[in-house]
Amino acid sequence: MPPRIRIRPRALRLRTSHSFSPINHTYASLATATTPAPPIDQTIRSAAPVLRYPANQPPSHKPPEVRKTQLHRQYQSLLRSSPLILLFQHNNLKAVEWMSIRRELAIALNKVDAEREKNGQELFANDIKLQVIQTGIFGSALRVVEFYNPEETLLDHAQHPTDPRTATSAQIPQTSNKPEDTRFKHGLSREAWEVASNKKLKHELEPLLSGPLAVLSFPSVSPEHLKSALSILAPSSDFPAPKRKTNPDLYEPAVQGGLQKLMLLGARVEGKVFDQDGVKWVGGIAGGIDGLRAQLVAALQGAGASLASTLEGASRSLYFTMESRRLDMEETEKGDKKE
């Protein structure tokens, strides 16, 4: 056990107060100011670049705090992230009707998901949303998504980490904090706005974008989910609505009254525009993408077999023609000899 040393705080305090003599005190105003020379490192190399704005909020053309701008950004990301979007016109639906339609849609999609879960396939019933959109802003966002395709990213202008002038390995675009900077490539940048406001560019979906609209967006082109969504929202002979016995909630007046006012106008499937019949065709693809692959394989196998037979057939027929020609020539030769 080490020896115990007693701490005597009182004694310590006495000693320190003794060393504290008034002679050492000086006034700040009397001190001669000496600025230390900057470290040699700073004089040789440039200072580390500083990003003048939050990395996920580059300066936008329109004021970023406005609802319009945020909706624009939201719709762009919706258009980019969902390959299958159905467009509906809604004519004065009541809140109760919206609520009950959404409920029925969610129930139907969850049923599809339950079946897919058994097969171990991807589930996305929770990501399929029916939402009312601001038509004009959606149209503008669509133009940006379709017509504005910047190739280079902002980081092409960044200082390379191996560049000796760079004091840090952080890659930061050398852009200013002004929306006028032409190096900004994001969807809300001034350049995107200029490209999208070109009146000469026309998009096929544009005639649809007028009046009150709602979109149903799917995170993936899944004909199964589309089929069940269509059977609820736009029932037809190809996609009949579930029977009253199996699904009595669907026949409540709130749901049916709402569905009468909801009109399917068209769809945007992987950048292509489809009308109602096109939507039905997409919904009618049996088995989804896997089913299509199976069909393709079968078609290719069939094509292989028929190709082999045609190639064989050509050689066979060639043989026949040559043979007949030989016989023919022999006959004529014989004939010549006879004459």
Binding site: N91, N92, P207, L208, P212, K261, M263, G266, D275
Partner: peptide, 22 residues
């Protein structure tokens, strides 16, 4: 709906009040 001339028809439908069918 794909014709730009269909706009008045669609707007007319949206002008009908919510309880009209009922």
């Amino acid at each position: 709906p794909f014709s730009p001339r269909s706009k008045p028809a669609r707007i007319f439908l949206s002008l009908i009040p919510p309880s009209a069918r009922a």
